[in-house]
Design a protein around this nucleic acid. Structure first.
Length: 735
DNA sequence: CTGGTCATTTTTTTT
DNA sequence: AAATGACCAG
């Protein structure tokens, strides 16, 4: 049954209510951490529907599948049954929404309807290939750097031509050459990378008036989640869709903008009001998640950012416990202390494992933690959504499936042509390639005609023929109509099974008795069951049946677009380990953040630019604000980095936390005396007035917590500002 | 053609 | 430390 207006508005604060009841026109919700953003969003949509808006006119775009799923679920709970699923609101990630539209309007978008989506690894392969073709030396320019430049260009909506037109200098000249070679490869393979999904969608909306008006009319109310993370392409998509009606609601928090490196443009949210002069702005500053000291610590930190709209953060949940700042000897010690912290939460405070998380800046830090948690017998999962699909055997199986769905996908074809090895080696492949170039053939077509080629051993011809026949057999099996229900998924699972068996992947691992290969076999089994459970998202025009090939394509698409955050399963009874980026949008009773060191957080690569430094600070802010009740921040005095053990420098962010809202604990060795250091820091909070026998009266400007001791910057009435070590300076508090 | 050893390179975050 | 790539012996 449909919720009534009153039911929808019950239990909301005035600010939340203002956002929920706003109907037409632009709306900007500035949602601080823990301010009930999802509640506002879902209630707003329910409110629109209760007010007579047909639910299928609503489009909500998010960044992760998990966010989309959660939003969809919470909304479904408020809607009558018939308004969920097809006919209900569309809730999707930017990327999957675009991927689907591009298939639906494939012809208008000038695309093969079953185009492949290349993940990071495929993209890397293709860029390497492009670099070779463009004769760019990979010793001076890594594929990673060039790939990043291309990605950047695409996010700014510069295609290869447009980039070439504005390129200047040697480096950009090189990038231009690689970019156009890369584009040729993608086009020849009927493949898109992640950035293309957005870029091509923009192009479609711009060039095809019919598609544009059709989508504008269909989606009458837009909602964009995590708006601070939108890049220029996403910005254009959102505003083009909203252009005819202006009903656009964006939700976000500039202080949580952490994807600048991916082209996210923080000015999208900072300048929303200029863009829509009639926009209503609703700030949500009250935090319903964390206790006082945690909110204070976070607020104190984020105030150090200069480019920022100031916003008061507060909570009514009581002061709670102070976050602990722990200094450890090395990373093993740090991991052990994290394990102690987690166990303490469980045993002393009754916190369940799933309410705890360990956060870090870079994935590499998870390894030591894993060991420590295993020895401490604390159950954990690492949130790496792609981890499963990154495994070699899975990538191989998926490459077979991709070639079946899209025979032009040569990056995948090359991957599998001799995996498992079937006697089609380098030399043979070279010959076939030459033959293909000669006859203007696609690689697969050339393979098909291997018999016509001169200079191949009969053994090679045999191997090739068998391989091609196998692919054709699988392809033929996929040219059938299947029901659009779970029964259809059975067919999909059977197809996956057929591929795994006939490709020889299965027998290659079956032959081996090693534990590792047995695990690979089990993983392949898991892929089959993933297929069996896959249901294609509802489409606008659909019959009861679809071709198995199209179901396969949808499956491959969903696999390509999984994110790390998607793997965070709130049902699981385990501690979650993840990067700070992945943690955005989540909350836990107890959080441990590790590696608070210069070079790690803030990361080295952000050191030389003020804006990147501010982004690192926001990242730290995001981490702190994940904690509801208890927070431990730690750093190691010594850390092994790429095989080298080195002393570390404390993160500047620790010194920026208000001293009075944290507790310092030095476990690194010589630090028995650190207990009264903490007292010192508490004794002379920022703002307090102090007397020094030599310098006279002064005001404490800031407190810095160091491994060696706390120090304070004090501005004296005599005019000078001095930094004093609290342990030694003869300071006396006056007021 | 395959599977091994040795040298080189990596240096963030992710849809 | 770990992963990738080049090179070489069977």
């Amino acid at each position: 049954m449909a919720a009534t207006h009153e039911a929808i508005l019950a239990n909301l604060t005035n600010a939340q209510r203002a956002a929920v009841t706003h109907r037409d026109g632009a709306l900007l919700v500035l949602a601080g951490p823990g301010s009930g953003k999802t509640t506002v969003v879902t209630h707003r949509m329910a409110h629109l529907i209760a007010g007579g808006v047909p639910s299928w006119q609503i489009l909500a775009l998010t960044f992760t599948n998990k966010a989309a799923g959660e939003m969809g679920e919470r909304m479904a709970a408020m809607l009558p049954r018939r308004l969920t699923g097809r006919g209900g609101p569309t809730v999707a990630t930017f990327h999957s929404f675009c991927a689907r539209q591009l298939r639906q309007f494939a012809e208008a978008a000038d695309l093969a309807p079953r185009y492949s989506i290349y993940d990071e690894a495929d993209r890397r392969d293709a860029i390497k290939q492009a670099m070779k073709q463009a004769e760019v030396d990979s010793t001076n320019f890594t594929p990673g750097a060039i790939g990043a430049a291309i990605s950047n260009a695409k996010n700014r909506l510069l295609d290869a031509q447009a980039f070439a037109a504005q390129a200047s200098g040697f480096r950009e000249g090189l990038i231009t050459r690689v970019y156009s070679a890369y584009e040729k490869i993608l086009r020849a393979n009927d493949a898109l990378d992640f950035d293309d999904l957005l870029l091509r969608m923009v192009r479609l909306l711009r060039t095809d008036e019919q598609v544009r008006t059709q989508l504008q009319q269909r989606y009458h109310y837009l909602l964009i989640d995590e708006y601070q993370d939108t890049n220029h392409a996403q910005f254009v998509i959102a505003h083009t869709l909203a252009a005819s009606h202006g009903n656009i609601c964006v939700v976000g928090d500039p202080d949580q903008s952490i994807y600048g490196w991916r082209g996210a443009d923080i000015s999208n949210i900072l300048e929303f009001e200029q863009q829509y002069s009639m926009a209503k702005v609703v700030p949500l500053g009250q935090n319903f998640r964390s206790t006082g000291h945690i909110v204070d610590a976070a607020a104190g930190l984020i105030e150090c950012n200069k480019r920022r709209k100031s916003k008061r953060l507060y909570t009514e949940l009581g002061a709670g416990e102070r976050p602990a700042v722990v200094i450890c000897r090395d990373e093993q010690h740090e991991a052990a202390l994290v394990a102690d912290f987690l166990r303490g939460q469980s045993e002393q405070h009754g916190v369940v494992w799933k309410e705890m998380a360990v956060l870090y800046r870079v994935n590499a830090l998870s390894r030591v933690l894993e060991e420590a948690l295993r020895t401490a017998e604390i159950p954990y999962v690492i949130a790496r959504g792609t981890a499963f699909y990154d495994r070699k055997e899975i990538k191989d199986a998926l490459a077979y499936l991709r070639v079946i769905a899209n025979p032009n996908d040569e990056v995948s074809l090359r991957r599998i042509i001799n995996t498992p090895s079937r006697g089609i080696g380098k030399t043979t492949l070279k010959k076939v390639e030459l033959f293909a170039i000669d006859g203007q053939l696609r690689l697969l077509e050339a393979l098909r005609r291997a018999g016509d080629m001169t200079g191949l051993t009969s053994r090679a011809v045999n191997a090739i023929t068998k391989f091609v026949q196998m692919l054709e057999g699988c392809h033929n099996a996929a040219v059938v109509e299947v029901p659009r229900t779970l029964a259809g998924s059975k067919h999909l699972a059977r197809l996956v099974e057929q591929v795994i068996r006939e490709s020889g992947l299965e027998s290659a691992y079956q032959r081996s008795p090693t534990e590792e290969d047995q695990q690979r076999l089990a993983n392949l089994e898991e892929l089959i069951s993933a297929a069996a459970q896959f249901v294609a998202p509802p489409a606008d025009e659909q019959g009861p049946e679809l071709r198995l090939l199209d179901l396969l394509t949808a499956f491959l698409e969903s696999v390509a677009l999984v994110s790390d955050a998607d793997l965070v399963d709130p049902q699981r009874g385990t501690v979650t380990l993840m990067t700070l980026h992945t943690a955005k949008g989540l909350e836990f009773s107890a959080v441990a953040m590790i590696g608070l060191e210069e070079g790690l957080l803030p990361h080295v690569r952000a050191a030389d630019s003020e804006s990147e430094l501010e982004e690192e600070r926001r990242l730290c802010f995001v981490g702190i604000t994940r904690a509801k009740r208890r927070l431990q921040l730690s750093r190691a005095a010594v850390r092994t980095h790429r095989g080298i053990r080195e002393p570390t420098i404390e993160s500047r962010f620790l010194g920026e936390l208000p001293a009075e809202s944290i507790v310092l604990s030095d476990q690194a060795g010589e630090g028995v005396r650190l207990d009264h250091e903490r007292d010192n820091a508490v004794e002379f909070p920022v703002g307090s007035i102090v007397r020094h026998p030599k310098f006279g009266l002064g005001r404490v400007e800031s407190i810095m917590l160091r491994a060696v001791g706390a120090s304070a910057r004090v501005a004296f009435s005599t005019g000078g500002t001095k930094t004093l070590i609290l342990d030694f300076a003869p300071l006396e508090r006056v007021e």
